[in-house]
Amino acid sequence: MSNTDFVLAIEDLTVSFDGFKAVDGLNMYIDHNELHVVIGPNGAGKTTVLDLICGKTKSSSGSIKFKNRELTKMPEHQIVRAGVGRKFQTPSIYENLTVYQNLEVSYPAGRSVWGSLTFKRTDEVIERVNKIAAEVLLTDLLQTEAALLSHGQKQWLEIGMLLMQDPELLMLDEPVAGMSAKERDQTADLLKRICQNRSMLVIEHDMEFVKQIAHKVTVLHQGKILAAGTMDKIQANEKVIEVYLGH
């Protein structure tokens, strides 16, 4: 596979589970500073694509290159250290720890066993935690146990935990699912703010939300790309209307 200028280049990616091809010969490219949204009906393979990129699922064939580094053979923690962050669909935070601790644990230093034993809470760490907490609107709740946060706040906290690592590619799986209208707007603002200087890959069902944030949209259907382009083009595409958007 040749090298490209893209941040993420997925080529001929296929994964099959007992013969069922969840992702089938997928080609997809993400540019620097691009906010790319993947939409599609249930079972289209959207989450599987994220699983493949972050190493949770191993591909059957094909290549995923992040800044021209092959990810398909790398263990998960190496992929993260290379600069790929991933948020799960249901908020995945450490409920027993405080918001502060959740963010601090995600700080990308002291990642080895020895490093974590000798890790010190320096001013730099504190400053970064405060900065990110402000970014995700949780400054007032830093000392609160994460279990007590609202659903929307938990989603933000997880985004904040990823921002602590300052990933070059940030992947979010349905970040506004279950959010109130107000929270959804705040999240759209948040995503627009944080996609400066990094690329993002977002899975979302909420079309209004997609319109608000997307630079580029890919529609997946049965593991294959049905259409790709700007939101306006996608909404006018007849095939997309037929299988996904409805008339």
């Binding site: 998960e76 993260v80 995945s92 450490y94 601790q101 644990v105 995600s106 890790f119």
Partner: peptide, 25 residues
């Protein structure tokens, strides 16, 4: 009380999240 201990609690709670935060669980 070190970061290691905090990670232990985090792992007990959400192992996947720790793994996908760049730690070799």
């Amino acid at each position: 009380t070190s970061k290691f201990g905090m990670l232990l609690l985090a792992m007990r709670d959400k192992e996947e999240r720790v793994r996908f935060s760049g730690y070799d669980v």
